[in-house]
Computed example of a mutant assay.
Amino acid sequence: MSRPDADSKLTACHDCDLLMRVRLEGEGRACCPRCGALVRRYGAQRQDAELALLLTGVIAFLLANVYPVVTLEAAGARSAATLWQTVVALERQGMLSVAMLVMFTGIVMPSLELGSMLYVRLPLAFGHVPRGFPWLMRLKILTRPWCMVEVFLLGILVSLVKLVSLATVHVGVGLLALFALIMLMAATASRFNPEDLWERYQQCRATA
C-alpha cells in the first residue's frame, strides 16, 4: 500500500460524498472523478479575488447607509431618506416592530457579516493570526441566514411602485449601492469556503 502524499488533503465530494485526496499546489480547481462536481478551488489569485469582493462590498454597504435611498417630490416639497432615517421614521410612526426588523436585516446583520469576514481575511492575507478566529467563523455561519438585504430591497421596490402615483420618485445612490451590495454579497458567499480559511489560519499559526 502506497503512502499518502503529505501535500494532499482528504476531501469529500459535496454531491456524491466520495472521499478523495486532493493535492493543492499552484492555481487550479479539483473536480470529483466520479460525478465531476467541483470540489475545491485553490490558489493565491482566488484568495485575492475574494478579498477584493469583500472590500468592494464594504464600500457598497457604507454608500448604502450614507446616501439617500430615494428622494420624493410632492406638492413642491422634497424629502430624502437614508436607511437609518427610514428606521427612525418607522419608529416615530408607531411601527416599532417593523423598524427593528428593517434595522436588523438591513443594517445590523450585514455589518456583522462584512465586518467579521474583513477582520478575519485581512490579517490572514498578510500572514497574521486574527484573534478570536474560531468565534468569528461561528458568527459568520450564524449571521448569514439573517442577512436578508434582498428582502428589504424588494420591500423598497414595492413601496416605490405604490408611491409613483402620489409623488415624483428619484432613485438615490443608496438604492443603487444596495443593488451592488446584494450582487457582491452573493458573489462572496458563492466563493466562501471555511476549509480554505481554516487551512490559512493553521499555516499562519505554524509560522507565527
Results as ranks from 00 to 15, higher is better:
residue 110 P to H: 04
residue 183 M to A: 14
residue 5 D to C: 12
residue 181 L to P: 00
residue 148 M to E: 13
residue 69 V to Y: 00
residue 127 G to E: 07
residue 63 L to D: 15
residue 167 A to E: 05
residue 92 R to E: 15
residue 64 A to I: 00
residue 178 L to K: 01
residue 118 L to V: 02
residue 30 A to H: 08
residue 71 T to K: 09
residue 62 L to C: 11
residue 206 A to F: 04
residue 206 A to P: 05
residue 63 L to G: 08
residue 17 D to S: 14
residue 47 Q to L: 11
residue 45 Q to T: 05
residue 132 G to M: 03
residue 81 A to S: 14
residue 59 I to S: 14
residue 119 Y to N: 12
residue 24 L to N: 04
residue 22 V to S: 11
residue 117 M to F: 07
residue 202 Q to K: 06
residue 165 S to K: 05
residue 77 A to H: 07
residue 93 Q to R: 11
residue 98 V to G: 00
residue 97 S to W: 02
residue 170 H to A: 13
residue 203 Q to V: 11
residue 36 G to I: 00
residue 48 D to F: 00
residue 82 T to P: 02
residue 101 L to A: 15
residue 152 F to C: 07
residue 174 G to L: 06
residue 55 L to H: 11
residue 171 V to P: 09
residue 119 Y to W: 08
residue 160 L to H: 04
residue 70 V to T: 08
residue 92 R to F: 02
residue 164 V to D: 15
residue 39 V to A: 11
residue 147 C to Y: 03
residue 26 G to T: 06
residue 188 T to P: 00
residue 25 E to G: 14
residue 131 R to V: 10
residue 57 G to I: 03
residue 177 A to I: 04
residue 62 L to I: 07
residue 197 L to C: 03
residue 172 G to F: 02
residue 50 E to W: 02
residue 191 R to G: 06
residue 173 V to D: 10
residue 93 Q to N: 13
residue 116 S to P: 00
residue 39 V to S: 09
residue 132 G to D: 02
residue 32 C to A: 09
residue 146 W to F: 14
residue 98 V to H: 09
residue 79 S to F: 06
residue 66 V to R: 12
residue 187 A to E: 12
residue 202 Q to F: 07
residue 201 Y to I: 00
residue 15 D to W: 02
residue 203 Q to T: 13
residue 3 R to S: 15
residue 194 P to S: 05
residue 151 V to R: 15
residue 94 G to P: 04
residue 197 L to V: 02
residue 7 D to Y: 09
residue 176 L to Q: 12
residue 110 P to G: 10
residue 49 A to M: 03
residue 195 E to A: 15
residue 188 T to S: 12
residue 1 M to N: 15
residue 173 V to S: 10
residue 46 R to W: 06
residue 146 W to Y: 13
residue 14 H to L: 12
residue 93 Q to W: 04
residue 116 S to A: 14
residue 103 M to S: 15
residue 49 A to Y: 05
residue 163 L to N: 09
